[in-house]
Every structure is written in C-alpha cells, then in structure tokens.
Design a protein around this nucleic acid. Structure first.
Lengths: 246, 246
DNA sequence: TTTCATTGTGTCGTTATGACATATTACAGA
DNA sequence: TCTGTAATATGTCATAACGACACAATGAAA
C-alpha cells in the first residue's frame, strides 16, 4: 500500500470513543501489535475524502463502530508531537514495513473527534494491526502512545463543555432509560454529584424527555419509570442549545 | 520560494479578525492583487512550527496584528473546498508564479482561528500580495473567495458560543470603557438588545469589572463611569467559565 | 408481613431574572 | 445663569429558577 498515493499528507485523525457502563465513563482503546502502549483509534484522510467522512470511516474500520454522534473538537498541531522514535519502534516490531516508514516519519497534525456510543452496541474487536481492543475506564487509563493522553483529556473537557448547554445522552444510553441512569451519566461526565430531585425538575423542564408507562422492575425498591428522548425537541435543543447551564 | 520545502503540505490557516467599532462588529479582510474577491488573512504552517504559532505569525505578517486573543475553532476539511479554478486565476493574474502553482493546486484543509483585537490598535495595511486591507462590517461582506464566507459565519457562531459562558471584551475594547460600550459589544455579537439595567447588574455580579473614579465626559448627558477588567478574575473566568448564560 | 432501598412528588426560603420607575448630571441653548 | 435634554445610576417588585430537604409510595427480600 502506498500511503503517499492514497492519503492526504501530514494529517491524521484520532477518535475518542466514549461509552457509559456501570456508572463509569469509558473510552475504547486499541493496543498495537507487539507494543505495550495503547492508542485511541486513528487513521488518515484520503485525498478525495471529507475529513468528517474520514472520521466515520476510521471509526468503522478500526473499531467497528457505526451510527454514532461524532464531533470534531480540536486540531492537535504542536511540533512536539513528534513520533519518530515511536515509528522506529513500530518498524522494529514489524507493525509497519520499513518501506512505509517514510510516510509515518512525516510530521503529522492530528484532528481530534469524540464519539458518543451506546456501550452495549459495541463489541470491541481488534482490527488487523491491533492485538486488543477494550473499553477502559477514564480513571484507569493505561500508558498511551504519543499525546493520546492529552487527546483524551481534551475530549473530555470538550464533552463537558457541550454538556453544559446542550442535551446529551441519546447516543450514550439505550433507547429507554430511567431518570437515575440519565442523572448518573451527567454526574459521571461532570465528575460531581447532582441532587436527584432538582435534576429531575430541571431535565423535565427542557421537555426533551417522554415519560413512558413502563417501569424497570428488578431492584429491591420502587420500580422507576422509564423515559425516552423526544427526538424532535432533543434535536432542536442540540441545534439551539439550552439557555441555562448545569 | 519553494513552498514544498518550507511548509507543511495540504494545510493552511485562516484567521477571522474581529474588531468592534461604531456599534458594529467588523472583520479585517484582504483583497488579493488584481482579484475582485476578498479573503480572510491566511497562510501556511511551517514544517517545524506549531499551528498556534503559525496563526500568530500569519496575523502579524499579513495583517500586522499582534497581541491578540486568538482561538482555534474549526478545521474546514470538506473535499468541496477545491481551489483549482481559483489557483488558475491567480496564475493568470500573476499573483502567484506558474512554478508555485503546483503547491496551490494541492487539496488543502484549512484551520480556522478567530482573533479578537482592539479596533483602534490596528492600522489596516495590505501586505505584498494584497492590494487592499480593510475593516468590513459583518453586515456588508463583499464577495469572498472559496468558502471564506462560511469560515466567517462559523467563526461568528463560535464567538457567540464562547460569549455565552465566558467573559469577552478584553481584546475588543480599549483598556477603559463604559458599561454601555461593553453592553453594546455584547448586543452586537449576540445580535439582540439587552436591558441596560439588568445587563449592568449581571455583569457586575461576575466581579470581573473594576469601577474607576473617572467618567467619560463629552456627551450632552450625565457622564458615565469608566470600568476596566480585573485581570485576575477575568482570566480565571476565561478558564472556568461562568455558571450562567446570556 | 415487615423491612429496606430507592423512587415520585412536594415544600420552602433564597437568589436570579425581567420589566420598569425615578433620581442624577453633563452639556446645549435660551 | 437657568432650563431642557439625553443618557446614566440606582432601585423596586413580581415572578421564575434554584438549592436544600421532607415524606410518602412501592417492589423485592427477609
């Protein structure tokens, strides 16, 4: 494969995939073959491809993830994000061929996207250049290549900022969910506890939720009602934002 | 000049420079030599240069603007932003040489920055490849090259979003200003009127302003007090944001 | 049947907000 | 010098939003 023919030079894409499970925010990470460091799924932009399209493709190719909320949040373009040493190691471990190392030795800027996906809909599977693919808690991040730690941190901050004035949850929760599950999602992203009763009042005030007749049985306690998002109002709020803040 | 030697391939930078004058939000535009369309000041990223540094350099080289608030807001990477036709015209008009046209014919993605500057501190002056440089009202934008219209529109939206939960004004207003001047700035950016009295109450509530003893005389009316920003609290609010919204 | 954990709903005092009234004052013109 | 004008400084008031918290309801387990 001749990278130089196919791909836009010096530009890569990295996708921070967020999932929510067991009261924790997780990211989907890959481990390169024979390497001991992890990475966010990434890839390159084809010469005749929109960058947004490339991001969707990368998600699909490298993490088998489709149908997600995907958002461009930052271009990482510091000169210090040099991967020469790393590339040599990749060549050494035969993850990439010596011939293609010329491509990888270029200086790259990388465009960061974050994706919100429903945890249960993703079956982590390594692609042909990774030997593992796993959900990892944000609190237990392993050692990451290059500046991927920073890329994840900045994605989280961007997500928090978005949460402040836009609805969130549609791609992180199953179709039906309880108010508590939604609140715990907010608490997890924000990293702080929210009052159960006030949260409900405020959230219902936005009108983005539809209360269902069903309840979720199973716990040794009163069965909570299920909710789903009102697509129309949800999407309108995504566009216009709330005029309030968490 | 051999662009291929010096610059990072396929990556450009465009800076939307906002200034505020006579109750209007303006942007600084350049007109290329012998061309009838205008452009936002832009440039390329050197191979050994951080993209943020490149943005600062571009501002300085092309618009003689220094000491500004500068923020990266979006990478424009659609394949439709093709400039082949435009480049041919540039060659035709001898704005660029035929030799360097190879560089310009590449597909480019462009990184958008917006800059906030104090109107009076800038003396628009065309650089060596432009034949004019002017402040232009957002409401009276001339015909622009490529997708520069979209680049400006998106910058304005990003600025509005920022305004919603961060202080703004330090780089758009002179050191000392009246409450009315600050409010009119907000009104201009938001595109809506705000209640004079409620604005003052809310703004003072943030604590980012220091009321001065001086007043601005000159009008046939009560002289308004002058204010300046409390640097420390202003900067802290820039970091953390307000927990409220305009 | 009792207990427990968690949910549904409501209250209350405080603060923030939007709408608006009134007093103040620099300058212009009589 | 006095008065009118235009804009500012400051305050009031009713309402809405918010944070803190109380208590009843209910599914399942003991």
């Amino acid at each position: 494969m001749d990278y130089f023919e196919i791909y836009h030079p010096g530009l890569s894409i990295d996708c921070v995939i967020f999932g929510f499970h067991e009261k924790e925010l997780k990211v989907l990470l890959l481990k390169m073959q024979n390497m001991d460091k992890w990475a966010v799924p990434g890839g390159f932009v084809k010469k005749d491809e929109d960058v947004d399209t490339a991001a969707v493709r990368v998600l699909k190719e490298r993490a088998s993830v489709t149908d997600v909320y995907l958002k461009q949040y930052h271009l990482f373009g510091d000169i210090t994000r040099n991967n020469s040493a790393y590339v040599d190691k990749l060549v050494d471990k035969k993850v990439i061929t010596d011939k293609s190392s010329l491509w990888f030795h270029q200086r790259f800027v990388t465009l960061g996207y974050y994706a919100l996906v429903e945890f249960s809909k993703v079956t982590p599977a390594p692609d042909h250049i990774s030997d593992s693919c796993e959900w990892v808690s944000l609190s237990e991040l392993p050692e990451l290549i290059l500046d991927h730690q920073q890329i994840i941190t900045k994605a989280l901050h961007a997500l928090r900022k978005q949460l402040k004035f836009q609805p969130i949850g549609k791609n992180l929760l199953p179709e039906k969910f309880t108010m508590t599950e939604l609140r715990v999602l907010y608490e997890t992203i924000l990293g702080e506890e929210l009052d159960r009763r006030n949260f409900q009042r405020k959230m219902l005030g936005y009108g983005i939720l539809t209360k269902l007749k069903e309840t979720r049985k199973g716990g040794a306690h009163k069965a909570p009602f299920l909710y789903c998002f009102n697509e129309e109002i949800y999407n309108r709020s995504l566009e216009n934002g709330f005029n309030t803040v968490w």
